[in-house]
Design a protein around this nucleic acid. Structure first.
Length: 269
DNA sequence: AAAGACACCTGTCCGC
DNA sequence: TGCGGACAGGTGTCTT
């Protein structure tokens, strides 16, 4: 489900529970992508200090350590009333002191929950991540440099979290369409002008998606239960064999790294 | 060293 | 209606 905009919407949503304390953590299913640490169930009452997003990770800083949460493909964090019935894939409850529960739900269990006492950014899963796309650090010069000698397709390169974080399959397709760049182009073949345009379109696409509350394809809702309206604005993703919004030729699809890739052969060179 | 395939898991949809 | 197969928002690890 979640790329950067959906994770950002999730972070903003759960930030509204502050100020509060986690009084107890109930782990019903500990086998996620990695085993949820046992010490979570034994955690003493701890105050949530702040909530931060890094790439597609949610960092919940508490007085005694940091929870690192990744939503995988189907993960969700919802704020629910403390008497809300537990459903099939509700794996973890973070019980709060304000009559609410922060509930982690994940049907495919590709997500993960980690607990660290040191700087979460030093965690092995986070330490090699590339720059945040919505910062000035991600600019045309940086991208041009990062793509040097990369023969792989440009779409795979921008989905590589070591090059730039947060861009997944939907937004890679969308940003490349907006930048009029063919997703199959070798990464190193982009000109400085194209890098500049692609950076601009990645930022714009992510920014608009956040504004729209993310993309709801099947089951993404904000922690408060709101729909993500960016699905209505998708120009290529999920629209194979439909007419291009610009030139009306039918959109082409292919597989790239086993992921659906949709583009306009005519507009994207 | 880099690129590609595979694995993890469940739900849904489509064609027969 | 039932069943098999393909596919889905991610990413670490294994194989070439």
């Amino acid at each position: 489900m979640p790329e950067l905009p959906e994770v950002e919407i999730t972070c903003r949503g759960i930030s509204q529970i502050l100020p509060c304390e986690i009084t107890k953590i109930i782990v019903r299913e500990s086998q996620l992508r990695w085993r949820v640490p046992k010490e979570l169930s034994l955690l003493p009452i701890t105050k949530i200090i702040s909530i931060q997003r890094r790439a597609k990770y949610i960092l919940i800083h508490t007085a005694s350590g940091t929870l690192i949460i990744h939503l995988g493909m189907s993960g969700r964090l919802n704020i629910v009333d403390k008497y809300t019935a537990v459903k099939k894939h509700d794996h973890i409850d973070f019980i709060l002191n304000n009559h609410k529960i922060l509930r982690y739900t994940d049907s495919r269990r590709f997500g993960s929950v980690h607990w660290v006492k040191q700087n979460p950014l030093d965690h092995p899963l986070l330490i090699d991540l590339g720059p945040e796309p919505l910062t000035e650090e991600f600019n045309a010069n940086y991208l041009m440099n990062a793509l040097q000698n990369k023969k792989q397709a440009i779409k795979l390169a921008i989905m590589n979290q070591n090059i730039v974080v947060g861009v997944g399959n939907i937004y890679a397709n969308e940003a490349l369409f907006s930048a009029k760049i063919n997703p199959l182009r070798p990464a190193h073949s982009l000109t400085p002008m194209e890098c500049k345009l692609l950076v601009k379109e990645i930022k714009k696409t992510l920014y608009h998606a956040i504004e729209a509350g993310g993309t709801t394809l099947k089951d993404f809702l904000s922690p408060e239960g709101n729909f993500g309206y960016f699905a209505l604005k998708l120009l290529v993703y999920g629209r194979e064999n439909e007419p291009c919004v610009v030139c009306k030729n039918l959109l082409t699809s292919c597989k790239l790294g086993q992921r659906a890739t949709v583009f306009c052969k005519h507009c994207q060179q």
